[in-house]
Design a protein around this nucleic acid. Structure first.
Length: 649
RNA sequence: GCCAGUGUAGCUCAGUUGGCCAGAGCAGCUGAUUUGUAAUCAGCUGGUCGGGGGUUCGAAUCCCUCCACUGGCUCCA
């Protein structure tokens, strides 16, 4: 007699199926097409193998390639497939872990004496495709801890034994496909044949358990897809990302450079880059002035004692540049790694009343940190950079309001720069372990609540992460997606109880008693270097008109029209439009081509006709000839575009 | 710092079974041309082949070492 179970679908429908049916069995009853797409199933909120029998009443959701969990299952299984290929190529290697990532997967392998090079990846890909074609099933097997230990001890696999050490009997499973068996929680896709396209992307070293004192394993990164077409699209996206690389564009557009002689990780801003950066700075400065910020300037070095007081010396001393010594015995200065200690001293320079608060000190402060060689990367990871920093000193009761104002400012910045796709993460204290945090429980609760409420009231999409707060306070970080969907970590707003205490900052309250203010760090851009890098990649070097270094290039057809070109240039200068003349002895086609490649938004072609008609022929970068207009019309057009901060396209 | 890879002119790149004075295009300079919407022609300049050491009759090419750059390095089965 058949036993039946009740299965609840996402739409609320409940249907009965034979006990022991798998998600695939159930999907097949609905349609063969669906069954082919099912990679895994969400069973009562847990991701399961699509082939695993279901014995109880449950809710179920089929997971396909379109679900994040479907993708990760697919990539996790792909990691196993890659492991099988590696094993066949290098028998006897040992495996650590092979998790899925946001965009693919990796596996950490101890290759023993073997060395794998980039050209081996091709061979591995071919092997993986071969194994995938065998269409072997991924088979789940529950095993007792004792048997599992026995199994891996026999194999001499210390890595899996290490993992087993942390697992309880009764929750241990093995997964096999083809000739490969792995200790694995699963779940996995039904069979290897679903993996149709394979690309191994990188090979890297990774310390075992991420600890640099441990042995270095070889990490192989890859990505797989259910169709070749999707892989091709992915590769096109990678190409697109390459074209947008800020290091490449920075060189081509003459924005910045690096010099070995100056020192690595120390960017040199060229005139074009400087104009862009200063424009961003002016833009934010104006917004901040309107929001009640007060500008301050502090020096590039500070006495060692300053950083001892702030705690930065203890925490970051070894990651700093070596101290600067003076003829004075025992005196040491450090390049400033942060602006906050200086700002705290500015706060202290005068007695403060509750009537002065909130007090908002802002500074585009350049800081220096010693990043390890391998960490350096273009403008995004450097040793000297400028933060769009500000420190808000306020009463605990003002935290929420200040957060709302900062969120407004960030919204304004993002909108002005054409970023529409962003989220935020609220980082709070660990729910249980509170020993590592400084500051009173009461203050923490007030601030955490303030951040959550401020974000909600501003309609910000947020994710709350417990245990991610800094030891000195909770924070709100902005994450945004650029034009081709890549995620960037942007500015941050952080509450800090630590520094006001360390610097013994106070204000006189309404009650005529001394109180400690709360400090809020905030940087909408994060750093100008990083933000410019993001902006370059977001708009592929085609900056919006209001930011671009050169807005207009005047292209005379021949030297004969230079005088008229000068007139045009003067008119533009008076109108505050950034323009230059291409007075080279070149043909117009050449001038246009060079200007197009330099991504300068507007070209004004000037020849006999324009001189005669007292107008200009306008050409837009990437769009071609726009016809003729009078100077007044053109200036109005440019001004409108600048005022509305239009994105380039 | 560690793993893997790369390093030839300002830029993009040829050249490696070790062998004439190391090449091209672009950029730059000089001259000719005075030009109508993505490259006018000609000539010239420019490199201790990342630095140092070694092997060799001979090294851009092979070995060692240092430097810089690129992709990674706490997403625990």
């Amino acid at each position: 007699m058949e036993e039946l179970i009740n299965i609840t679908f996402p739409d609320g429908a409940v249907r009965q199926y034979q006990k022991g049916s798998s998600a695939i069995d159930i999907a097949k009853k609905i349609s063969e097409g669906l069954a082919r797409k099912v990679l895994a199933a969400d069973v009562n909120g847990v991701t399961w193998d699509a082939t695993r029998p279901i014995n109880n009443d449950t809710s179920i959701k089929f997971l396909t390639w379109d679900d994040i969990n479907g993708k990760s299952t697919f990539w996790h299984s792909s990691a196993h497939l890659m492991a099988e290929a590696i094993q066949s190529m290098f028998p006897g290697v040992k495996f650590w872990v092979g998790p899925p990532l946001e965009n693919g997967f990796y596996y950490d392998v101890d290759l023993g004496e073997n060395v794998i090079a980039e050209e081996d990846l091709k061979k591995l890909e071919i092997k993986m495709t071969e194994l995938a074609r065998q269409n072997n099933n991924y088979v789940r097997k529950e095993i007792s801890k004792k048997d599992a230990v026995q199994y891996f001890a026999d194999k001499g696999d210390e890595y899996k034994l290490d993992l087993l050490g942390g697992l309880n009997d009764g929750e241990i499973t093995l997964y096999s496909q083809g000739s490969f068996t792995d200790l694995c929680r699963g779940p996995h896709i039904p069979a290897t044949g679903i993996i149709k396209a394979v690309k191994l992307t990188a090979i890297a070293g990774a310390y075992w358990k991420g600890n640099e004192n441990n042995k270095m394993l070889t990490r192989i990164y890859g990505v797989t897809f259910p169709t070749q077409k999707e892989l091709d699209e992915y590769l096109v996206l990678l190409e697109e990302a390459k074209k947008r690389d800020h290091r490449k564009l920075g060189k081509e557009l003459e924005l910045f450079t690096f010099s070995e002689k100056v020192g690595m990780g120390l960017p040199l801003w060229l005139p074009n880059g400087t104009m862009l950066r200063e424009r961003l700075q002016q833009f934010l400065q104006k917004a901040q002035t309107e929001a009640g910020y007060l500008p301050v300037i502090t020096p590039h070095i500070g006495h060692k004692n300053l950083y001892v007081t702030s705690g930065h010396f203890e925490k970051y001393g070894k990651d700093s540049f070596q101290p600067i010594k003076t003829p004075q015995e025992g005196e040491e200065f450090f390049l400033k790694p942060m602006n906050c200690p200086h700002h705290c001293e500015i706060y202290k320079s005068s007695p403060r009343s509750y009537k002065d608060l909130p007090l908002r000190f802002s500074e585009f402060g350049t800081v220096y940190r010693y990043e390890q060689h391998g960490e350096l990367h273009g403008l995004t990871r450097v040793r000297g950079f400028t933060q769009d920093d500000a420190h808000l000193f306020c009463m605990p009761s003002q935290v929420k309001d200040e957060f709302k104002k900062v969120i407004d400012l960030v919204f304004y910045v993002l909108k002005s720069l054409g970023f529409t796709d962003y989220t935020a993460q609220i980082s709070l204290r660990d729910k249980i372990d509170r020993s590592k945090y400084i500051g009173s429980d009461e203050n923490w609760e007030v601030s955490e609540k303030a951040i959550i409420e401020a974000s909600a009231e501003k309609g910000l999409k947020t994710v709350i992460e417990y245990g991610e707060a800094a030891f000195y306070g909770p924070k709100l970080d902005f994450m945004l997606r650029d034009a081709i969907g890549r995620k960037w970590q942007l500015g941050t707003i952080q509450v800090d109880y630590n520094l006001p205490e360390r610097f013994e900052l106070t204000y006189i309250g309404e009650d005529n008693a001394r109180h400690t203010p709360v400090m809020i760090h905030r940087a909408p851009f994060g750093s100008l270097e990083r933000f410019v890098a993001l902006l370059i990649e977001h708009c592929a070097g085609k900056f919006p008109l209001w930011l671009t270094p050169v807005q207009v290039k005047i292209l005379p057809i021949s030297e004969k029209f230079l005088p008229y070109a000068e007139n045009v240039l003067n008119a533009l200068k008076i109108a505050d439009i950034r323009a230059v003349i291409d007075d080279r002895n070149e043909k117009i086609g050449k001038k246009i081509r060079d200007t197009e490649l330099a991504k300068i938004p507007y070209m004004l072609v000037i020849g006999e006709k324009e001189v005669q008609n007292e107008n200009i022929a306008i050409r837009r970068q990437g769009k071609g000839d726009l016809g003729t207009k009078s100077m007044a019309e053109f200036i109005a057009m440019v001004n409108e575009e600048v005022e509305n901060k239009r994105a380039f396209e």
